[in-house]
């Protein structure tokens, strides 16, 4: 934060120091930073450099630098491909569905918990709703498969007991996105709730006191005090989510996919993986282009939403 008084100005009495002196003074700090910075450069920035193969014809023997430039060839191939609209549609629909289903529940949970007086009850609700967060994605999908199994799963036992035909859930393309989204809500609601609870805890109690004196009911206090109190953090989370709009994840979808639900389950990420790493053609350049396309749109969305939030005087990331 420029302008604020620092230990630096305190010790040097504010007299001008050259840049070089400042750097020399912090040499041990730079030494500490060296290793982590090296890691980030190697594992995050080198791949950004490598992303240039999106505009080349990558050949393993020639390497990233030596391969031939082909310009926007892969881009044209992608946007004109049969897969393009299906990928965009599935990715956006899963992403928006997750956002709409996933956003209100943690907020509701936090608002409710905030009005619970019994500490023991509050703690147990938190503890239990938080637990699924620790289940790995593989186990999570395993649980979903087991519970929804057409013959052995409890869900179909219930459906049959009610006199209906069993439903082959994982074979129905129309149900894939709902299963994906709602199992995600189940797993994440407790974890996502924590951040809102923290925001609620930081609301000035004087606001509540004066609301009570004015005769506001709990519902009104929730609406007029609590909700505005957590708005900034909700907006920040929304912005961050928008920045990952197209990242619906390699992991869970890839695990849940099968040939019967591919129509609604194939998304950009899974396609990127398949085109390069799970096909004999090993089309690295084409796959990289699709990945880059996604990253660029994500970044653009992040900047755009942040800009809108800043203009409307809500919270913003920078």
């Amino acid at each position: 934060m420029p302008g604020e008084p620092t230990t630096e100005t305190f010790r040097s009495g504010g007299t001008g120091r050259t840049r070089w002196q400042k750097i020399r003074k912090g040499r041990q700090l730079y030494l500490m930073l060296a290793l982590p910075v090296l890691f980030v450069i190697v594992f995050n920035y080198v791949p950004m450099y490598g992303a240039q193969i999106a505009f080349k014809n990558y050949v393993v023997t020639k390497g990233i630098w030596g391969s031939e430039w082909v310009g926007f060839k892969h881009f044209h191939r992608f946007v004109n491909s049969y897969e393009y609209w299906r990928l965009i549609r599935n990715t956006l629909s899963i992403s928006l569905y997750s956002l709409i289903a996933g956003f209100p529940f943690p907020i509701l949970l936090a608002l409710s918990l905030n009005y619970v007086r019994s500490l023991a009850f509050k703690k147990s609700v938190q503890m239990i709703t938080y637990a699924p967060y620790f289940i790995s994605v593989v186990v999570m999908v395993g649980i979903v498969f087991e519970l929804l199994d057409p013959r052995k799963g409890i869900v179909n036992h219930v459906i049959q007991a009610l006199g209906f035909e069993p439903v082959p859930f994982m074979a129905k393309a129309g149900l894939f996105q709902s299963i994906y989204v709602w199992s995600g809500v189940w797993q994440m609601v407790g974890f996502s709730c924590i951040i809102y609870l923290a925001a609620l805890a930081s609301i000035d109690p004087a606001l509540h006191e004066s609301a009570v004196i004015d005769g506001a009911s709990k519902l009104r206090r929730m609406w007029h005090v609590d909700l505005p109190g957590i708005m900034p953090i909700a907006v920040i989370l929304l912005i961050i989510n928008m920045g990952h709009m197209l990242d619906v994840g390699y992991e869970k979808i890839l695990l849940m996919q099968n040939s019967l639900n591919l129509r609604t389950s194939e998304v950009i990420d899974t396609y990127v993986y398949k085109v390069a790493l799970n096909s004999p053609a090993m089309n690295y350049s084409y796959s990289t282009l699709i990945g880059l396309f996604k990253s660029v749109i994500n970044l653009a969305l992040l900047v755009l939403v942040n800009q809108v939030a800043r203009k409307t005087r809500q919270a913003s990331l920078w």
């Binding site: 980030v40 992303a51 390069a276 990253s295």
Partner: peptide, 22 residues
Amino acid sequence: LFMFLFVFTTMFSGGLIPFYIL
């Protein structure tokens, strides 16, 4: 500058394949 170097990686990435090649 250093902070930006770190935080930027959460907003943009080279993607799966360049990472795999690396």
